[in-house]
Simulated assay, not measured.
Amino acid sequence: MRELYFKQWLPISLDEAWAFFSNPSNLKEITPAQMGFVVTSSYHGEKMYAGQIIRYIVKPLFGIPLKWCTEITHVVEKQYFVDEQRFGPYAFWHHQHRFTEQNGGVLMEDILHYKVPFGILGSLVDRMIVNREVNTIFAYRRKILSERFGS
């Protein structure tokens, strides 16, 4: 299983950060276009809540579309939320999003645990492709968030 940690300080209020990140409609904005990310849930609302199911189509590798379903399992307003994969491309996916007021802005932290399926073959594909792609997605998010909110 992989454990990845990303952090970024944004010069915005906690209210502004929470309003943006807790709205599932904003996920597409912070995902690279080549991922072909589309929210397919009939209702995803303006604000996430514990128990919410969000369905997507995503093209993580080689442009092959995959269905992905996550559940928002925990929400503590203006502190953190957790999304967990219910079905999709990973054998395991647990992603914590944390927000802390710091130095007149917000420290945003992502703690991601994931595992690729297919045992040893999956581990090899993870080392060769998947881990690099996941890191690329988070680098893209960092860039887009800096452009949108400043750094």
Score class of each variant (00 low, 15 high):
residue 34 Q to D: 14
residue 115 K to C: 10
residue 139 A to Y: 14
residue 90 Y to E: 11
residue 46 E to T: 13
residue 2 R to A: 02
residue 64 I to E: 05
residue 45 G to R: 04
residue 110 D to A: 06
residue 92 F to A: 10
residue 25 S to N: 14
residue 85 Q to L: 08
residue 24 P to I: 10
residue 124 L to D: 03
residue 108 M to Q: 09
residue 151 S to T: 07
residue 46 E to Y: 03
residue 4 L to M: 06
residue 101 E to K: 12
residue 38 V to W: 05
residue 92 F to H: 12
residue 53 I to Y: 08
residue 128 M to T: 13
residue 61 L to Y: 14
residue 111 I to R: 13
residue 20 F to N: 00
residue 143 K to N: 13
residue 142 R to K: 15
residue 24 P to D: 08
residue 83 D to E: 05
residue 123 S to E: 09
residue 91 A to I: 04
residue 15 D to I: 01
residue 100 T to I: 11
residue 10 L to N: 00
residue 70 T to L: 09
residue 115 K to A: 14
residue 50 A to H: 12
residue 20 F to T: 02
residue 61 L to H: 12
residue 90 Y to D: 10
residue 147 E to H: 08
residue 53 I to C: 05
residue 103 N to M: 13
residue 59 K to I: 12
residue 104 G to P: 11
residue 12 I to N: 00
residue 88 G to D: 05
residue 61 L to I: 15
residue 36 G to V: 06
residue 142 R to H: 14
residue 88 G to S: 06
residue 7 K to L: 01
residue 65 P to K: 10
residue 38 V to Y: 05
residue 50 A to T: 11
residue 129 I to R: 11
residue 147 E to G: 08
residue 17 A to Q: 01
residue 82 V to N: 02
residue 143 K to W: 07
residue 114 Y to Q: 06
residue 16 E to P: 01
residue 74 H to G: 00
residue 101 E to H: 06
residue 147 E to V: 05
residue 79 Q to P: 02
residue 33 A to R: 10
residue 29 E to Y: 06
residue 95 H to G: 03
residue 135 N to Y: 10
residue 146 S to H: 10
residue 149 F to L: 00
residue 121 L to S: 07
residue 5 Y to D: 04
residue 39 V to E: 05
residue 118 F to V: 12
residue 68 W to V: 13
residue 139 A to Q: 15
residue 9 W to K: 03
residue 151 S to N: 08
residue 58 V to M: 13
residue 34 Q to K: 13
residue 87 F to P: 08
residue 114 Y to P: 07
residue 93 W to F: 10
residue 45 G to M: 03
residue 5 Y to V: 05
residue 16 E to N: 03
residue 87 F to M: 12
residue 88 G to C: 07
residue 18 W to I: 00
residue 49 Y to V: 10
residue 13 S to W: 00
residue 119 G to Y: 08
residue 101 E to R: 12
residue 75 V to P: 01
residue 102 Q to S: 15
residue 9 W to Y: 02
residue 26 N to Q: 14
residue 79 Q to F: 00
residue 67 K to W: 07
residue 100 T to W: 04
residue 14 L to R: 00
residue 117 P to F: 12
residue 121 L to T: 10
residue 122 G to Y: 04
residue 7 K to G: 02
residue 148 R to Q: 07
residue 133 E to N: 15
residue 64 I to A: 09
residue 84 E to R: 15
residue 120 I to C: 03
residue 81 F to W: 02
residue 1 M to N: 03
residue 15 D to M: 01
residue 108 M to G: 02
residue 130 V to M: 13
residue 69 C to Q: 13
residue 8 Q to F: 01
residue 71 E to A: 09
residue 29 E to P: 04
residue 39 V to Q: 05
residue 86 R to N: 09
residue 13 S to A: 00
residue 101 E to C: 12
residue 20 F to R: 02
residue 1 M to V: 05
residue 26 N to F: 08
residue 113 H to R: 11
residue 32 P to Q: 02
residue 127 R to G: 04
residue 73 T to E: 04
residue 80 Y to C: 03
residue 47 K to D: 04
residue 76 V to M: 01
residue 115 K to D: 11
residue 108 M to N: 05
residue 14 L to M: 02
residue 102 Q to L: 15
residue 11 P to C: 00
residue 68 W to N: 09
residue 57 I to D: 08
